[in-house]
C-alpha cells in the first residue's frame, strides 16, 4: 500500500474519489484480493463482448473462467494485461484494479503491467530461437546482461516449469524441436522468468495430449503458492481439478462466481447448472 504518511480521514489533501479508492485498497489488502474488476464492459466496435463484469480475484489461488465458446473468456483474460489494446476499435468502460492500481487508464505503464501479469497462450508459441533464448527473452529485453545471473534464472524457471529434466542439457536446441507439451511448459517458463505476480492462461492445455495436460495441471497446482493464476478453460473437469474459484460467463455476462466446489455441486443460477450438466454449450 503506498503510504503517504497522512491519515486519509483527516487530511484535506485528498479528493473524495481518492478517499474512496484508498478505503477500497485497504479492503482489497485485507481480503487478499489482487484483482478487482468493477463494472467492466468491453466493446469490439459497437458489439459488446463483456457486459458490466464485477469480480475479485484472490491472491495465491487458481481462478477458472468457464463458459461456452464466444462468451468472452479470452477477452476478459486479455483485459488483465491489456492485450486487447493490440486490436483496433476496442472500447472499454469501467475499471480493473490490480494491487489497487487502475490498469485501464490511458497512462498505464503497459511494460510494467505485463511484467507483473504474465500470460500463457492457447497455442504454444515459443519464439523460433533456442530454448535458452526463449526463457531468457523477458530478462534480456529488460536489459539483463549478466551471463551468470541469466543462466541461474533460466535454470530456475525451467525447474519451476518442470522442464529442466528434459531440456536442461539441450538448451541450445531450437525450441521448435520440442513436443507440444514441452513447448507449452517452455512458454510457462518464459513467463515465469520475469517473476510476475499473476499468470493468465488461455486454454493452455487445449492443444495437448492427456499426459501433457495432467503434467500442466499438476504444475498449475504447485505454482499457486507463489503466483496467482487465472485460467480459461473449455474443459469443466479441468476447472474442477485445478481451480479454487470458478467464474461462469455467458454471452459476455458474469452469471455466477464462487468457490469451484459450490459451482460444480450446488450452483445458484439455473444457467450455470444447465451449462455444467452439459445441457448447452
Amino acid at each position: 500500500m503506498e503510504d503517504k504518511g497522512i491519515n486519509p480521514w483527516v487530511s484535506t489533501e485528498y479528493s473524495q474519489p481518492e478517499y474512496v479508492r484508498m478505503i477500497e485498497n485497504i479492503h482489497a489488502l485485507n481480503e487478499n484480493l489482487i484483482v478487482r474488476v468493477e463494472d467492466f464492459s468491453l466493446f469490439y466496435g459497437d458489439k459488446p463482448a463483456l457486459k458490466r463484469i464485477n469480480l475479485s480475484i484472490k491472491k495465491n489461488r487458481v481462478t477458472a473462467i468457464i463458459g461456452p465458446s464466444g462468451c468472452g473468456k479470452s477477452t476478459l483474460l486479455r483485459a488483465f494485461n491489456r492485450m486487447n489494446d493490440l486490436i483496433p476499435n476496442v472500447r472499454i468502460e469501467g475499471r480493473i484494479l490490480i494491487d489497487g492500481e487502475d490498469i485501464c487508464k490511458k497512462d498505464t505503464d503497459l511494460v510494467a503491467l505485463r511484467r507483473k501479469v504474465g500470460m500463457v497462450f492457447q497455442k504454444p508459441n515459443p519464439f523460433p530461437m533456442s530454448i535458452y533464448e526463449n526463457v531468457a527473452f523477458g530478462l534480456k529485453i529488460a536489459g539483463e546482461k549478466d551471463r551468470a545471473r541469466l543462466d541461474q534464472l533460466v535454470e530456475k524457471s525451467l525447474r519451476q516449469a518442470a522442464l529442466w529434466d528434459e531440456a536442461g542439457d539441450i538448451l541450445d536446441r531450437s525450441a521448435l524441436t520440442l513436443s507440444g507439451g514441452q513447448q507449452q511448459r517452455l512458454c510457462l517458463a518464459r513467463a515465469l522468468v520475469i517473476e510476475p505476480e499473476i499468470i493468465l492462461m488461455d486454454e493452455p492445455a487445449s492443444a495437448l495430449d492427456p499426459i501433457s495436460t495432467a503434467k500442466l495441471e499438476a504444475l498449475i497446482y504447485s505454482l499457486k503458492k507463489d503466483y496467482t493464476i487465472v485460467i480459461v478453460t473449455h474443459n469443466m473437469q479441468q476447472a474442477a481439478r485445478v481451480a479454487d474459484y470458478t467464474a461462469f460467463l455467458l454471452l459476455g455476462e458474469l452469471v455466477e462466481y464462487d468457490e469451484t466446489r459450490k459451482i460444480f455441486t450446488n450452483p445458484t443460477d439455473k444457467r450455470t447448472e444447465d451449462y455444467i450438466t452439459g445441457r448447452f454449450g
Binding site: 493490440l86 515459443p126 520475469i194
Partner: peptide, 26 residues
C-alpha cells in the same frame, strides 16, 4: 506470426524491442 508478437508484448516488450528482437530476425 501474430502469436510471436503477442508473446513478446506479453513479456513486457515495447514495440521497438518486439520489432528488433522478434520480427526482424525472423
Amino acid at each position: 506470426p501474430l502469436e510471436h508478437r503477442e508473446a513478446a508484448f506479453a513479456l513486457g516488450a515495447t514495440k521497438l524491442k518486439m520489432i528488433v528482437r522478434v520480427v526482424l530476425p525472423q
